[in-house]
């Protein structure tokens, strides 16, 4: 089982670095990422030259991010079980080129998302999403979800420990199934009460229905240069290789 909280924690720590990539405007990074992903996704005649091209672009971003490359690659490799399964199926049905393309495309795309996310704090990301006209309520829900992920996951973790302590050697699945359902119920109740508590605390500080908009950041020349350079490189690979 993957610990959601721990993995979020790692990305969170990465995102607070101070590299050239970290200091760029989140809108520029997201837009560049979108161009890169769309270029990969829309390539139907996938060649190994294109793979090399996309990899070079991503390596440049990776170098500019000063993030730990092996750890990042390992994280991105979480995609591989899914990709590899389908690649294997494709390969067995005789289409080795396509099998390779599936793995390469999904890995490059996943790594690209990871590099951008690991170089952008979530607050900046939320600001950028709002600037890109993602519904405000959805952006807010994402922020609350992220904020309380740790709190609720901690609760779930403590309940697991408590259950494990008392589980003993009982092997019968039926009562354990019901115990797990009870745990989900308790977690639900705690979460609901937590939400009530948050709302009360917000109202106590004068909240009257709308969240203050996030202050916009300034889009500098360097952000524009990065966006153009990155996008042009991705397009060049898409069209020429």
């Amino acid at each position: 089982m993957r610990s959601a909280a721990r993995e979020t924690w790692i990305v969170e720590r990465w995102s607070r670095g101070s590299s050239p990539l970290h200091s760029l405007d989140a809108r520029a990074k997201l837009a560049a990422l979108a161009v890169y992903l769309l270029a990969i996704a829309s390539t139907s005649a996938w060649t190994q030259a294109a793979v090399a091209g996309y990899a070079v672009i991503l390596s440049a971003a990776l170098a500019a991010s000063r993030l730990p490359v092996p750890a990042l690659l390992a994280r991105a490799a979480l995609i591989l079980p899914f990709s590899a399964t389908f690649a294997l199926i494709t390969w067995l049905s005789g289409d080795a080129t396509r099998a390779l393309a599936l793995v390469e495309k999904s890995f490059l795309s996943g790594l690209a998302v990871l590099v951008v996310i690991a170089a952008t704090p979530l607050t900046d990301l939320a600001r950028a999403l709002e600037a890109f006209r993602v519904p405000r309520s959805l952006v807010l829900v994402i922020q609350f979800l992220y904020r309380y992920l740790f709190v609720v996951a901690d609760q779930a973790h403590r309940m697991r420990m408590a259950a494990a302590c008392r589980q003993g050697i009982r092997r019968n699945a039926r009562p354990r199934f019901h115990a797990a359902a009870g745990a989900v119920g308790v977690l639900f109740a705690r979460s609901w009460e937590r939400a009530d508590g948050i709302y009360r605390a917000m109202a106590a500080r004068g909240f009257h229905g709308t969240f203050p908009a996030l202050a916009p950041t300034r889009f500098r020349t360097v952000d524009g240069v990065f966006l153009c350079g990155f996008a042009l490189a991705a397009l060049a690979v898409r069209l020429m290789l």
Binding site: A126, R147, V151, R194, G197, I198, M202, A203, A204, G206
Partner: peptide, 18 residues
Amino acid sequence: RSKVGLVFQDSDDQLFLP
């Protein structure tokens, strides 16, 4: 609400912004 400041028992309820 501006005159009376309520500090809640569970700080996690109160600190919700990033």
